[in-house]
Simulated scan of single mutants.
Amino acid sequence: MRCPYCGADNTQVKDSRPTEDSAAIRRRRVCGDCGGRFTTFERVQLRELWVLKRSGRRVPFDRDKLMRSVEVALRKRPVDPERVERMVSGIVRQLESRGEQDIPAEEIGLLVMEALKGLDDVAYVRFASVYRDFREAKDFKTFLGELDGDPQGREKAAAGQDG
């Protein structure tokens, strides 16, 4: 493992332990050259996944990118980081267990939205505003109508009408 500070590959593991949900091994490392300390995580990868973008491009699935987008939606929200980690791990397990190597980006977005809906309403709306590409305040109003169970909001959103 290369040191993130100096780039040397002379690093040693000082401590290893499973994460709370036992989905990964957390390793504390120290660089023999510069003395820098850092943490790595080792996870099981069942298969190599690829994301099919809306543009038609095919890119490797990046768990860290998924985590970053969830963290952006959850910024300044009172959600335990362990719950976020479990949520992202659950989404990755769902994707890996599908049996398909290529996964449309839209399906990943829907899984994230569904998971965020159960975790934090504000993060759910934040993520949806980017995922559904809200352009105006009325887009939020229509979406919030759906969230509140307003049948007219749901019908208008499905038809793509203004709220």
Rank of each mutant, 00 (worst) to 15 (best):
C3G: 00
P4A: 00
P4Y: 00
D9R: 06
T11V: 08
K14Q: 15
S16D: 12
R17Q: 14
R17F: 13
R17V: 14
P18E: 08
D21Q: 07
D21M: 08
R28V: 09
R28H: 15
R29Y: 01
R29Q: 03
V30H: 04
V30S: 11
C31A: 02
C34Q: 01
C34G: 01
T39G: 03
V44K: 09
R47V: 06
R47E: 06
E48M: 05
W50M: 07
V51I: 15
K53V: 14
R57W: 13
R58F: 10
R58Q: 13
V59Q: 13
K65H: 05
L66D: 08
L66T: 09
R68N: 10
E71R: 09
A73L: 05
L74K: 03
K76M: 05
R77V: 11
P78M: 07
V79H: 10
V84M: 06
V84P: 01
E85P: 01
R86S: 10
V88A: 04
I91E: 10
V92L: 05
R93V: 05
S97P: 03
I103P: 03
I103V: 15
I103K: 07
I103N: 03
A105V: 15
E106P: 06
E107T: 11
I108E: 02
L110G: 11
V112L: 06
M113Q: 13
G118H: 13
L119D: 09
D120S: 10
D120T: 06
S129W: 08
V130P: 02
Y131E: 04
R132A: 04
R132Y: 04
D133P: 00
D139T: 04
D139H: 12
K141V: 14
K141W: 15
E146W: 13
L147Q: 13
L147E: 13
